[in-house]
Design a protein around this nucleic acid. Structure first.
Lengths: 203, 203
DNA sequence: CCGCGTTGACTGAATATTCAATCAGTTATT
DNA sequence: AATAACTGATTGAATATTCAGTCAACGCGG
């Protein structure tokens, strides 16, 4: 049995290879230059085989997007023993930590490029709508726990989560598309926000 | 003399027509389906003429991006008589106001699609890096004024601006690429942030 | 004022390339 | 022998780019 990276078991080993090839090609060339030919060049088998497993390029990419978002969501797994505030900051640091490696950057870039296809493509947009809702709800749950535990003030968890999630989105896009890196400053100001707005006084 | 919208005088009337046509085609079809042919269909003259004025599609689009960002930056003009806090909220409302019309949406979408080309295209990336720096600095200036005037606490203006600008970026991308609209919640939480973190106590 | 050459804006048709998709066939598996 | 996995060559459409040539304006020497 070969468990390979974030990829599931072998129900269809070839599909996994295709997804990996797509991932590699996307990172290497970017979405705009992502062609079937380039995907097949990262793929040990033939180009036509892609069409044996998928009806069209669109279908392949949509499947890939689903896999990417799912693995993103799963990779978020937080230590359930940690305190709410610890979990929240861990989550945010995943996005806001400026000490990212090349792999993180490529991943951010890939997901950002895919996201923006949702500006004109209904199927992509739906995927990201769901993804956004899921992330925001998770954040809201954590905040709600914090409020319940008395660590946070009596804030509206949805409202706080909306802002934090939007901030995370913004940081991702900026990092992927501009060299004006603001992550350190954002992280610092976020701490101030926690201090003044979120954390209960009697600690 | 014909002054037409945000477009400058007629040094080269035709260039202006080309930029307008590009704008129209981009809004109508989205970046992925933006072809020279479609641009030329929005353009009263011939397709080949585009190549008389630009060497390539790339060059045309880059020129267009420059124009778009400049007109964005110019359109920000704030009432210099307004108080710092008024100017800051006006600026943020430009992005965060959920009551946007179709034109705003199309504009946001267009600029977002262009931005993300900067994930793989160095020339685009440079433009957006500059653009980001400019916006962030403007925000920082306003915050600094607020601090000086005693309306705001003794915060680090750059740090606050970094966060606000990142938040604005995030809201733009989300609005353009997902139906999970968080603007109202973000706006509300932002007010809480102002209240608890930014505004001086003795008002 | 007249021809005439030059230039730049402009056009319609042609070309070259890229790329998704297909197909006719082969190999492996059961 | 039937089915699924797989391949290499090919096709047709979309699309950026080029090209050969027209037209109108302008300058200028006769």
């Amino acid at each position: 049995m070969t468990s390979d990276g974030p990829f599931p078991e072998d129900p269809t080993e070839t599909r996994v290879e295709i997804l990996k090839a797509t991932d590699a090609a996307l990172r290497r060339h970017g979405y705009a230059d992502l062609t079937i030919d380039r995907i097949s060049r990262e793929f040990p088998k033939s180009k036509s085989l892609l069409y044996h497993h998928y009806d069209s390029k669109d279908e392949l990419l949509l499947d890939f997007l689903g896999y990417l978002l799912t693995s993103f969501e799963d990779g978020l797994g937080l230590d359930p023993d940690a305190s709410p505030h610890e979990r929240l900051t861990t989550l945010l640091n995943r996005v806001l930590d400026p000490a990212s490696d090349r792999d993180d950057d490529a991943f951010r870039r890939a997901i950002t490029e895919l996201r923006v296809q949702g500006a004109s493509d209904e199927a992509y947009r739906q995927q990201f709508t769901e993804h956004d809702r899921l992330l925001r709800d998770r954040m809201a749950d954590i905040v709600a726990e914090g409020v319940e535990a008395g660590v946070y003030r009596e804030v509206d968890p949805d409202q706080v989560a909306a802002m934090l999630h939007t901030l995370a989105s913004g940081s991702m896009v900026q990092t992927a598309t501009s060299d004006a890196d603001a992550r350190a400053a954002v992280r610092a100001e976020l701490d101030a926000y926690f201090e003044h707005r979120l954390l209960a006084d009697g600690r």
